[in-house]
Amino acid sequence: MRTILLAVLAAGAALTVPVPADARQGCGVGAHRGPGGYCRPNRGRVVVAPRVVVGRYYQGRGYWDGRRYWGQRYRWHGGWRYR
């Protein structure tokens, strides 16, 4: 009797597994689900920043060394040193 009861409970639990909701449901074209589940309009095209390359000079920022921008750089021991 106990095994039958456990089998029925396991089958019931397997049927009630939550399925992730589709975020597009009910919002329509040009909208998405926001925090709290409310529909919000899309803001248009999202512009992704271009890839930053180490050692390249960027106007108005300086040289990128992989961690931060530096205003100046010079040769030092076969490489670059930033100031």
Rank of each mutant, 00 (worst) to 15 (best):
M1V: 11
R2E: 13
T3P: 06
T3G: 08
I4R: 13
L5A: 13
L5K: 05
A7K: 03
V8T: 06
V8L: 15
L9N: 01
A10N: 02
A10F: 09
A11C: 14
G12N: 08
G12E: 10
A14T: 00
L15Y: 10
T16D: 08
P18F: 04
V19M: 09
P20Y: 08
A21F: 06
A21P: 02
A21I: 04
D22A: 06
A23T: 07
A23C: 15
R24K: 11
R24G: 15
R24T: 09
R24A: 12
Q25K: 14
G26I: 00
G26L: 03
G26E: 03
C27N: 01
C27Y: 04
C27M: 02
G28V: 02
G28P: 00
V29G: 04
G30A: 01
G30L: 02
A31Y: 10
A31H: 15
A31Q: 14
G34A: 14
G37W: 04
G37N: 03
G37F: 04
G37C: 07
G37P: 06
G37L: 05
C39D: 02
C39A: 04
C39K: 01
R40N: 07
R40C: 09
N42A: 05
R43W: 07
V46S: 11
V47M: 12
V47A: 10
V47P: 04
V48I: 13
A49I: 00
A49S: 14
A49C: 09
A49Y: 06
P50S: 13
R51D: 08
R51A: 12
R51I: 01
V52W: 08
V52S: 06
V53N: 00
V53Y: 05
V53C: 05
V54Q: 14
R56A: 13
R56M: 08
Y57D: 01
Y58R: 05
Q59W: 10
Q59I: 07
G60Y: 02
R61N: 07
R61S: 08
R61Q: 13
G62E: 06
Y63F: 15
D65A: 03
D65Y: 04
D65I: 02
G66K: 08
R67P: 01
R68D: 10
R68F: 02
R68Q: 15
R68L: 07
Y69H: 03
Y69G: 00
Y69N: 01
W70Q: 05
W70N: 14
W70E: 06
W70F: 10
Q72K: 14
R73W: 06
R73T: 03
R73V: 08
R73I: 01
R73L: 06
Y74D: 09
Y74A: 13
R75S: 09
W76V: 09
W76H: 11
H77M: 11
H77V: 12
G79I: 03
G79K: 09
W80M: 09
R81N: 07
R81D: 06
R81E: 11
Y82P: 01
Y82W: 09
Y82E: 03
Y82D: 04
R83F: 07
